[in-house]
């Protein structure tokens, strides 16, 4: 599978301009023979939307979304947007579109609402972590904070996931002696996830500055054996084509059959026990 990583900086609250940038990159990815292109979290809108959430929200009927479906005939596209549901709730969402249809929509489940984040103030939380079938194997999408909750990873893993796509808007902070806290945590987590779940991990993080907050980029891909296949620079708008050998999942699960040996009944028993009920 040839994946195009689109590490971009969106314009805050300008869907038209951002869409134009997406389409340009999609065309570029097609020229390079890519089969999938992955954009970051809220790639169509930017991150610190605050009251702009209500202006940029859309559903599948929006002309921009329709254009994505059109482009998706020849390439799988993963992008981030604000989804407005029929019952008028607003979600931090991502879409996997391919062959002219929405294959899967993920609504961010774990909305960070602390320190520099206030997503819980503006967004409704999703309530499902699901895998979906693609031409590249069973896949799951997670949005940023979702990754730091074991339930997300566990459910994807037990649902047979082979590729985990992570759309992220991680701000650089805690910039002390040894790199900054955010990238240290993400790189550790991505490598751990790939190696322990024996899955391909595609992590795309945005760059750019919004009101003084710098998003650090550093998008990266690990194969199912935990090997780093590509990593983009920090803070720079950049794209890259990465070839992922899907057979690596098989090899990883022979070498390190953690999935085969997982005893999920332990978890079920624990959750059903008195100590597990919270």
């Amino acid at each position: 599978m040839r994946v195009h990583l689109a590490q971009i900086k969106p314009v805050l609250g300008d869907v038209e301009k951002n869409a134009a940038k997406h389409f340009e990159i999609i065309e570029h990815a097609l020229q390079q023979g890519c089969e999938m292109v992955v954009f970051p979290e809220l790639s169509l809108t930017g991150y610190y939307l605050l009251d702009l959430v209500y202006d940029v929200a859309m559903d599948e009927s929006h002309p921009v979304y329709q254009k994505f479906l059109e482009y998706s005939k020849d390439i799988a596209i993963v992008f981030g947007y604000v989804y407005e549901s029929k019952d008028r709730l607003f979600y931090n969402a991502s879409a996997f579109v391919h062959r002219g249809v929405t294959v899967h929509q993920h609504r961010k489940v774990y909305l960070p609402d602390y320190t520099l984040f206030e997503e819980g103030r503006y967004f409704a939380a999703g309530n499902r972590i699901q895998t979906f079938e693609t031409e590249f194997g069973t896949t799951g999408m997670l949005i940023c904070e979702d990754v730091f909750h074991m339930s997300s990873l566990y459910i994807l893993s037990q649902s047979g996931v082979q590729n985990i796509i992570i759309l992220s808007n991680s701000p650089a902070r805690g910039n002390l002696e040894l790199g900054h806290d955010a990238s240290n945590t993400w790189q550790t987590s991505n490598r751990y996830m790939a190696g322990v779940l024996t899955v391909n991990v595609i992590f795309v993080n945005r760059v750019g500055v919004e009101d003084g907050v710098s998003f650090w980029g550093g998008s990266e891909v690990y194969d199912a054996r935990g090997r780093l296949l590509a990593n983009l620079e920090m803070f720079k708008e950049q794209t890259a084509c990465v070839d992922i050998d899907l057979e690596n999942v098989r090899r990883a699960r022979i070498e390190t059959p953690f999935l085969r040996d997982e005893k999920s009944f332990l978890l079920r028993n624990f959750l059903n026990s008195e100590r597990g009920i919270k």
Binding site: N175, E177, H180, G208, V209
Partner: peptide, 23 residues
């Protein structure tokens, strides 16, 4: 309290450039 100096310079110069030019 010591800084990763290269990283700090990257963040701050990028900040000045972007916050100036984007408007």
């Amino acid at each position: 309290m010591r800084l990763d100096l290269d990283l700090t310079v990257d963040i701050l110069t990028n900040f000045i450039k972007e916050e100036t030019e984007k408007i």
